[in-house]
Design a protein around this nucleic acid. Structure first.
Ligand SMILES: [Zn+2]
Ligand SMILES: [Zn+2]
Ligand SMILES: [Zn+2]
Ligand SMILES: [Zn+2]
Lengths: 156, 156
DNA sequence: TCTAATGTCTCTAGTAGCTATAGGTTCAAG
DNA sequence: CTTGAACCTATAGCTACTAGAGACATTAGA
């Protein structure tokens, strides 16, 4: 039996994240000690590692919920799981395509600047006028490149 | 003078988004009509187009705020603007690298599944065991591939 | 055994960048 | 003059967490 802290350490997940996963129903509510603290068995670790791995591969929590449900009764055909993974793959591919276009524009923009005053800056100029762009349609479609968030949702 | 609706149409931006940009100080508060409705001059359209273009290239709002401030007095050197654009470019590059690794894993996962029962599904199996992955370190580092969110923040 | 440090509990609010809704006012066409 | 569209404000919701407050539990050392 692991405390929530040990579980988090074992899975590389912060403690509040574990409580969050329980709250949204990804992890089963843990048993409690006399003093009301959560206690976890080994299968909880496996489940948490599954979640983390799927998150690291960019699956959104909704998709992970579905994958876990499938995992819970292994006699069904796996078509649903495969569909989720393929949707995820397509989302990643779409995103890579978008980002590659963005990279292209950003590179040109940065390269063409003569590093004078803002009034002559190519970066500012291009941002103010999309007609100066090479690819006329690099509308980012959505998505983040942030270091804060993780989702990767292909589903509608 | 444009109404908020016309401005939104002209820039390809939804009306609530314009109000949001005003609220967070990206757009100057608009003048109002007798009946308290917003009225915009042409320069507001230019500013909004600038914001949209930068957003489409993935710049986070904070970076755009800085870029707009630079644009507002054009006699400074443009080093700051170039630095923001380069940071953005690096963020995009990092993200592309990450996503390429994810794509690789997802492709393998999907390809190796024999489409039997969930109990034998390679997708489920790999998700449950990161050791089955080719790249040992595809931790997604963060970021989204979602269709909901847009950020791309390189700045700490 | 006492105590201090750490761990845990719940609850709330904040992050990014919008989007949606509710309930009310104003405008423009017919 | 009436109707419908567009507008106003304010609030809540979305993803996936993260951070904090204030209180209780556990554990190691003296
Ligand atoms: Zn420049
Ligand atoms: Zn462009
Ligand atoms: Zn399968
Ligand atoms: Zn892996």
């Amino acid at each position: 039996m692991l405390s929530i802290g040990k579980l988090g350490q074992a899975a590389g997940v912060k403690v509040p994240t574990i409580r969050y996963y329980e709250q949204i129903g990804l992890l089963h509510p843990a048993g409690r000690s006399e003093g009301n603290q959560r206690l976890y068995a080994r299968d909880a670790l496996a489940r948490l590692l599954f979640i983390r791995h799927a998150r690291d591969l960019g699956f959104p929590l909704d998709a992970i919920r579905d994958l876990l449900a499938l995992q819970d009764d292994p006699h069904q055909p796996c078509a649903a799981a495969d569909a989720i993974a393929q949707a995820q793959l397509q989302a990643v591919n779409r995103r890579i395509t978008q980002l590659t276009a963005l990279r292209c524009e950003l590179e040109k923009m940065v390269a063409q600047c003569a590093h004078g005053s803002v009034g002559e800056c190519r970066v500012i100029e291009v941002l103010g006028n999309h007609d100066l762009c090479v690819h006329p349609d690099h509308d980012d479609g959505d998505d983040a490149v942030t270091d804060h968030d993780h989702a990767l949702a292909p589903r509608s």
